[in-house]
Write a protein that binds this DNA or RNA. Structure first.
Length: 570
RNA sequence: GGCGCGGUAGCUCAGUUGGUUAGAGCGAUCGACUCAUAAUCGAUAGGUCGGGAGUUCAAGUCUCCCCCACGCCA
């Protein structure tokens, strides 16, 4: 039995995520976790909310709530939506957890002991009216280059010129509009990533099976220009993990917190601690410490391409620098972007379909199937309502749903709601079994390799094989002359439904549970081989005819949604 | 401006280390069937693989130049 540690990039606490975020990490991670569990492997699947930083503080202020309360509420909202999509996290944690506080401070202490942290004094803009330091992008003013009056402190959106906040004419706070700003000297900690460059480079080189997308991004950051830069890991904020050197105070750093960039990935580890706490103190170190049993763990991370640098360089730098035997990632699966109707999904602009809205209009399986089977794996991919309608109607309703319907209804009308016996399998059935064995092997291989689209393609082909079989065996014809043959053919058909339920669970768990319960199967075991899997339902076994598994998306509904989701979310 | 990823049938996409007639699904057309959610099954339709040049016995698959879209960075 293998052991799989699986993490999905942790979504930011601020607001509800859109479908592009979902397919960019959580959903494929769930597919893989469900698959590995189905194969009988031990899985720890973790995700959490990323809760610190200025955007969270501002969102809380906007909502008129204390930031800790706001985060607790949003975490609950995201957890509920994740559940709605069937995301099977073993634990959905929070980067603001006590476990992450302790661990983040621990890592900082280790890094400091290893002389990998240096103190830097720098100038930052402080807003008296807001009572806070302002990140560059929260300072607005007139661009010295083009006179655009809404240029941001990091860049002018109008002329694209890169700016320093002090370049702005008449600078003001983007939060309050206040012009009562001053430049203050403040001290921060920097992680000396540059000192770890060679170690990181060697580590990346050892990953021969990583996607080109992943290694090329990492290599770029390592070697571009002056190479890997040191990065600030602290901020002047209230909401965050207080800067401490392990258990001890950090003189000079009072009132400062660690930057999200530093504490968020550490939550992957801390989350296992939270999981342990929620599960009677289960041993979490056997998943994370190679000196405590994590040697045989295979660790896979899922994320969007924008997150690759943090996972290939930032987080590994933290771990390598600590000098402690933490488990490092084995495989890193990154995704491109899903576009929405010719443009981008956008959280800030409210463009596209958001997870809560998606669940309001259709069951999660519809989304899971379409998103996974059209997942932006090798390049960006495109969501349009027409494509979505086509894919769902054809694959789920026509190919799979209708198969279940035609078999169960035919059986009920001719033989009743028990599995008929009939003759033994003949040549056509033997050929089908051989075909299925080959297809299941290919499907499994694709799933093992995390080839999401190809897995979906193969699964669909397995569903089609059932329709082909029915069409060529034609029990509705054979029953007129030879009832035993028709009975055998329908017995095969019913067993195919059971096989489909087992194989399809990682993609469409709800529908598979419906199939399972209709067939009266106690468990859905991954098939050892097609022949035995197709003998699971013996003659005389009772079943029921389920409601249609998937309703088709009508043109009217599609047009309605197209309208409803064409603008921006209010 | 630099860099990155792409530009393959109407649409969405596959195409391992270069090797016989470039693939899948959808859509379209025709046919079969009638158990089923007007579902299914089969067949056909034919794209100079963005453009140009080059390397090679052989290039969608390598090199160079150009064009287009997207993204990242300073």
């Amino acid at each position: 039995m293998q052991r799989h540690l699986i993490t999905s990039a942790i979504p930011y606490i601020n607001g509800i995520k859109h479908l592009g975020n979902l397919i960019g990490s959580q959903l494929p991670a769930d597919l893989y976790a469900r698959y590995q569990r189905a194969r009988g492997n031990e899985v720890l699947f973790l995700c959490a909310t990323d809760e610190h930083g200025t955007p969270a503080e501002l969102a809380a202020a906007k909502a008129g709530k204390p930031v800790d309360k706001y985060c607790a509420e949003m975490h609950a909202v995201q957890a509920k939506i994740a559940e709605g999509f069937g995301l099977s996290f073993d634990h959905f944690g929070r980067s603001s957890s006590p476990q992450n506080h302790a661990l983040t401070q621990h890592f900082a202490g280790r890094l400091a002991d290893a002389d990998l942290i240096r103190e830097v004094s720098e100038k930052q803009v402080y807003s008296n009216a807001d009572g806070r330091y302002l990140p560059d992008r929260y300072i607005e003013g007139t661009c010295p280059n083009c006179s655009y009056d809404k240029a941001r402190g990091d860049q002018c959106e109008n002329c694209t010129k890169q700016l320093d906040p002090t370049d702005l004419i008449d600078p003001r706070s983007a939060i309050s509009g206040s012009t009562d700003l001053e430049v203050r000297e403040t001290k921060h900690l920097y992680l000396r990533q540059s000192a770890l460059k060679d170690d990181l480079d060697a580590w990346i080189d050892s990953k021969k099976d990583w996607p080109v997308l992943t290694t090329s991004i990492a290599k770029k950051w390592l070697h571009d220009g002056d190479g890997l830069q040191d990065r600030g890991i602290t901020r002047d904020l209230y909401w965050g993990i207080p800067v401490r050197r392990g258990d001890a105070d950090w003189p000079g750093m009072e009132g400062k917190v660690f930057y999200v960039w530093f504490d968020a990935p550490i939550e992957y580890i801390a989350c296992a601690g939270e999981w342990s706490e929620a599960n009677d103190g289960a041993d979490w170190e056997r998943w994370w410490r190679t000196d405590k049993g994590a040697d045989d763990v295979r660790y896979t991370q899922f994320m969007g391409k924008d997150n690759v640098p943090f996972h290939t360089l930032g987080f590994p730098a933290t771990i390598l620098g600590s000098g402690e035997p933490w488990k490092m990632v084995d495989h890193l699966k990154s995704f491109n972007y899903l576009n929405y109707d010719g443009g981008q999904f956008s959280t800030s602009q409210g463009r596209g379909v958001f997870m809560d809205q998606a669940l309001e209009i259709l069951p999660s399986d519809y989304w899971r199937w379409w998103l996974l089977s059209n997942c932006p794996e090798t390049s960006d991919s495109e969501f349009t309502w027409e494509l979505f309608q086509q894919g769902v109607n054809k694959d789920l309703a026509d190919v799979l749903g209708n198969f279940v319907s035609r078999v169960t209804k035919f059986c009920r009308s001719k033989f009743g709601e028990t599995v008929p016996e009939g003759t033994v399998f003949g040549a056509r059935e033997t050929a089908l079994i051989a075909d299925l064995d080959a297809r299941i092997a290919r499907y499994s291989a694709m799933m093992d390799a995390m080839e999401v689209r190809k897995s979906a393609q193969e699964l669909r082909a397995i569903w089609v094989a059932g329709n082909e079989y029915l069409q060529s065996s034609a029990p509705w014809t054979s029953i007129k002359e030879d009832e035993d043959t028709a009975a055998m053919q329908i017995r095969m058909g019913l067993n195919l439904i059971g096989l489909y339920a087992a194989l399809s669970t990682p993609f469409i768990p709800e529908a598979c549970a419906t199939m399972q319960s209709a067939l009266g199967l106690e468990t859905l075991d991954w098939p050892q081989d097609a022949a035995s899997a197709l003998a699971l339902l013996p003659p005389g076994h009772a079943f029921s005819v389920p409601d249609n598994l998937f309703a088709k998306i009508t043109d009217e509904a599609r047009e309605d949604w197209q309208q409803r989701f064409s603008g921006v979310r209010s």
